[in-house]
């Protein structure tokens, strides 16, 4: 072998050497930044989150009302009107003037304040619903896909089983049942749960009901992802090196499979928000007077002929929020999966 090349170092120019490393996450983030709709949506969602978290502070600062403050004598105030409030109990008129930017409902409650407080319910349902579903679905799907064989078979038969559940009728029945609990004395551990639910304005059981029925699709997706990665050679390499199951799952599989799962959950958030809005719409969501956009829309529907703002204000908030989550989700999907951009 005369023309034998020594295995010499690959030579590189200075610039190439000092270039910063590009992580896959960083690439995705840069890609997302290019997507204007997604970035605007992200900003909007952040504003919503801040609003939801600071609603009480804004109330204490006197910018907005509490969600249940009733301005006496000003039922159905039109938007952009102000009224003198006589909320003092002692009969002495209080000279404080309150302006209803978006009007007030039949009880004289400021619509803007209630809409801001309503952000809490929608975001909580959206994030916790998707969070619970992501958690259960991922754990279930990863176990099923990773261990395979009989375990996988059994677990997937159970998922198939759940696929036959008609979501809406069953969730309605579940909510009817949970609602009946909140008025009853049940005692024991159940009482603790009922108390939690009451203190959360009826949201807790909503999370349970939504979470219990919505992780199935996520489990299938997670399993499929794990199946496609676990046969990859880098997993085999980790095994050859002596890595245990937990290390392989957490260090090698999860970081690779989680992207599409998060994208899919982001795109599912509007679904949870819809579900809550719909359940509140038929009176099976959060307990009044906790404001929820769905409940507000339903309440406003009766007077839509003369007071359309009662529907339009919470309706716009609901539509904009779901729009933002959809744009963000689409943007994330494109950023994570360059193939879909069609380049």
């Amino acid at each position: 072998m005369a023309t034998r090349e020594r295995a010499k170092p690959v030579t590189l120019d200075e610039e190439e050497l000092l270039r910063k490393p590009r992580s896959p996450m960083g690439d995705a983030w840069r890609q997302l930044q290019k997507n204007k709709a997604a970035m605007i949506s992200l900003a909007f969602i952040i504003v919503l989150i801040v609003m939801a978290l600071t609603a009480d502070l804004m109330h204490q600062a006197g910018w907005i009302d509490d969600y249940n403050t009733q301005h006496r004598g000003v039922g159905y105030a039109e938007p952009l009107t102000c009224a003198n409030d006589d909320k003092d109990e002692d009969g002495v008129p209080d000279p404080v003037q309150f302006c209803f930017v978006f009007g007030a409902d039949e009880l004289g409650r400021d619509l803007l304040s209630r809409t801001i407080y309503g952000t809490r319910v929608s975001l909580a349902v959206g994030f916790i619903g998707s969070g619970v579903s992501l958690l259960i679905g991922t754990v279930y799907g990863v176990i099923s896909g990773y261990y395979g064989g009989r375990i996988d078979n059994l677990m997937m038969r159970f998922v198939d089983f759940l696929y036959g559940i008609p979501f809406l009728p069953l969730i309605i029945l579940m909510q009817v049942y949970f609602k009946s609990l909140s008025n009853a004395e049940v005692g024991g551990l159940a009482q603790v749960l009922v108390d939690i639910d009451n203190s959360m304005g009826g949201m807790f059981f909503l999370f349970v009901a939504l979470g219990a029925l919505s992780w199935i699709g996520m489990a299938r997706l997670a399993r499929g992802q794990v199946l496609s990665y676990k046969e990859k050679e880098f997993v085999e390499a980790a095994r050859a090196v002596g890595a245990g199951d937990l290390r392989i799952i957490f260090i090698h599989l999860l970081p690779n499979v989680i992207g599409p799962l998060i994208v899919s959950e982001t795109l599912a958030i509007p679904g949870y928000i819809f579900s809550e809005a719909f359940l509140s719409f038929i009176g099976l969501g959060v307990n009044p007077p906790t404001p929820s956009w769905g409940a507000m829309i339903n309440a406003g529907r009766e007077g839509i002929r003369s007071k359309p703002y009662l529907v339009l204000v919470p309706g716009t908030a609901l539509a904009l929020t779901t729009l933002a989550f959809n744009f963000l989700g689409d943007g994330l999907r494109d950023a994570f999966d360059p193939r879909l951009r069609g380049e």
């Binding site: 509007p270 928000i273 819809f274 809005a277 719909f278 719409f281 769905g294 829309i297 339903n298 406003g300 529907r301 839509i304 529907v311 339009l312 309706g315 716009t316 609901l318 539509a319 779901t322 729009l323 989550f325 959809n326």
Partner: peptide
């Protein structure tokens, strides 16, 4: 993105 409970009444 527009939920039917909004689109319908609108």
């Amino acid at each position: 993105s527009i939920p039917s409970i909004v689109l319908g009444p609108v």
